[in-house]
Design a protein around this nucleic acid. Structure first.
Length: 238
DNA sequence: GCGACAG
DNA sequence: ATCTTGTCGC
């Protein structure tokens, strides 16, 4: 019944140190494909994780929510808990969250056509933000939807109206779009994750956004991950 | 060497 | 990331 996912090598899931982790990132980044989804997008997915602030156990509670791409209605939700293989270090977020996210994906009834991830895609020091990291391992289309900048700076002034966007530039290259997803609120940073074009990433993100700053897929996943963490804690302990 | 630094 | 009351602007 559950999905069968590609096998992932141990050193990719849990590298021994940051030097090895960076090497894994460069290798996976070389596999990123920036071409649009082959078939039409009917099923969207949003993913996110929740965790306790200074949890000594390093527990990561992940959620994947499936939504109808047209109505944005939730069709299914899957969750999973895993222990993070390393502490949070800017630039290495994927190693903390991907294992739990993959476990949650394995519980889904079907694979989505496009996945929105809470975090950056290629707008990362080594081109492997969590959205690209997850997308390459699953070899599925992903988009990075971050709430703040990791690297780069907006080019020009961003108009206050929903839908407005300017490039996020780093080292002379455009690595993401700074998108005003809602009138007069802080922008989102939308980047290519895997198997999607920059234009499609921006269009799909805006199309999936209604009355809130965050697009529905990511918003629903955030709520689901948080609810899962609280429920898990209530049933088990600590 | 110093500052920056997704979630 | 999470915690949390009040407060500000539309």
């Amino acid at each position: 019944m559950p999905l069968t996912l590609p096998p992932i090598p141990d050193d990719v899931l849990s590298p021994p140190d940051l030097t090895a982790a960076a090497a894994v990132q460069r290798r996976l980044a070389a596999q990123m494909v920036m071409e649009g989804p082959p078939q039409p997008v009917r099923l969207l997915a949003g993913v996110d994780v929740s965790a306790f602030p200074r949890d000594p156990a390093g527990r990561i509670f992940a959620a994947v929510v499936l939504l109808d791409a047209t109505t944005l209605q939730v069709r299914a939700t899957a969750t999973a808990m895993r222990i993070a293989p390393m502490p949070y270090v800017p630039g290495y977020l994927g190693f903390r969250e991907v294992p739990a996210l993959l476990a949650a994906f394995a519980e889904l009834p079907e694979m989505p056509d496009l996945i929105l991830v809470d975090g950056h895609g290629i707008s990362h020091p080594r081109g492997l933000g969590i959205a690209t990291h997850l997308g390459v391992l699953l070899d599925r289309p992903t988009i990075g939807v971050a709430k703040s900048v990791l690297v780069g700076r907006p080019e020009g002034d961003l108009p206050p109206a929903r839908g407005a966007s300017v490039p996020l530039v780093w080292k002379g290259r455009t690595i993401a779009s700074v998108l005003r997803s809602k009138d007069k609120v802080a922008p989102l940073y939308v980047s290519v994750g895997h198997r999607v074009t920059p234009e499609a990433a921006l269009a799909h993100t805006l199309a999936a956004t209604t009355r809130y700053r965050l697009p529905e897929p990511t918003r629903a996943a955030h709520n689901a991950a948080n609810a899962f963490r609280l429920a898990w804690t209530a049933e088990h302990g600590r």
